[in-house]
């Protein structure tokens, strides 16, 4: 698990340069509270304390990566309680949670602090010092994410604010745009994902099916006409990459069979596009993954591994 942590860390360092030291603080708060809640819940429930396995650190990092970097510090703390205690330990601890803890925390925070969670985005620093934002009131600097702009104002506003196609691709790919830490640098996420794939920690099935479904469906339905959407932009904007490589792939909450994984990934992609295009939120991958999570055990049940050979006379 520490490998995954290591893969996630570069993203944090880059985000410090893009958004300022604020991101580091919020991540630290999130990770620390996750560790604390993990220890506390394991103590309270009389279980062995296993913070060293790194799973709480991953959850902490992911919570910080999916919330706006400008939120009050209380939010990641409450998110940690939801993710670690309610989402994981009450259900039996590591390996028994049904939903991805970090995303559960995000959904919870989004419902509980709708304003902070939808408006505390920071614009890239563009040459300012990374400390320059400390202590400044947030609403003076907050801005909107590309997907939110797209949802409320349309593609023209996105181009105006973030640049024209194709320059916008490179801007997004490098992460120079407002967004959660984990949404920023597509480049680093892809690199980390490919590394994990090479090390065989993850397989290609889920990321590829998620991204393919998102790209394909956005291409078909996402534009003013059919087959007029911009698939590349859909993948680069929002948390699609982080979700596909690091969240949908969460071992505990994804199916194990390969066919099941492909269906699961496609489902996530389809729901993401559905929520993005028709839903009430600008970004849908968080909820798409949460919605597919409970299906993973069902899918595994339906697509059981093929037995070597059934016993003669059939299975009883």
């Amino acid at each position: 698990m520490w490998t995954v942590v290591a893969c996630l860390l570069p993203l944090l360092f880059v985000s410090v340069f893009i958004f300022g030291i604020q991101t580091l603080i919020i991540t630290a708060v999130s990770v620390a509270s996750c560790l604390l809640v993990e220890v506390a819940s394991q103590k309270a429930l009389g279980r062995k304390v296993t913070v060293a396995d790194g799973s709480a650190v991953i959850t902490g990092l992911l919570i910080a990566y999916v919330i706006p970097p400008g939120v009050p510090y209380l939010l990641p703390v409450l998110g940690a309680v939801m993710a670690i205690y309610i989402g994981k330990h009450l259900l039996g601890g590591l390996g028994y949670n049904i939903f991805n803890p970090a995303l559960l925390a995000r959904a919870f925070l989004l419902a509980t602090f709708p304003v902070a969670m939808t408006s505390s985005w920071l614009p890239p620093l563009r040459g300012m010092s990374i400390f320059s934002r400390l202590g400044r009131p947030l609403d003076a600097i907050s801005t909107a994410t590309p997907l939110a702009v797209l949802k409320t104002q349309g593609m023209a506003a996105v181009s105006q604010q973030f640049g024209e196609v194709p320059k916008i691709y490179s801007t997004f790919f490098l992460g120079l745009r407002p967004g959660a830490i984990g949404e920023t640098s597509g480049l680093l996420i892809v690199l980390a994902g490919l590394y994990l794939m090479c090390r065989k920690y993850i397989t290609w099935h889920i990321p590829v099916s998620v991204l393919t479904a998102i790209a394909l469906l956005t291409w078909i339905f996402g534009g003013p006409d059919y087959f007029g959407g911009d698939p590349l932009l859909a993948i680069l904007s929002g948390g699609a990459l982080l979700g596909a490589f690091f969240m949908a792939n969460d071992y505990v909450t994804c199916p194990t069979g390969k066919i099941a994984q492909l269906i699961y990934g496609t489902g996530i992609g389809a729901l993401t596009v559905l929520i993005r295009l028709k839903g009430g939120y600008p970004e849908g991958i968080c909820y798409a993954i949460l919605l597919m999570n409970p299906l993973s055990s069902v899918l595994d049940d339906w697509f059981k591994p093929r037995r070597f050979a059934p016993p003669l006379g059939g299975v009883k």
Binding site: F99, L104, A107, L110, I275, G279, L290
Partner: peptide, 20 residues
């Protein structure tokens, strides 16, 4: 615990809110 899990389901189903 069934209630808690149902609550988590409800949280996930919030994703559909506002869907038109």
């Amino acid at each position: 615990i069934a209630f808690i899990v149902a609550g988590q389901f409800a949280l996930a189903f919030l994703g559909f809110s506002g869907l038109k």
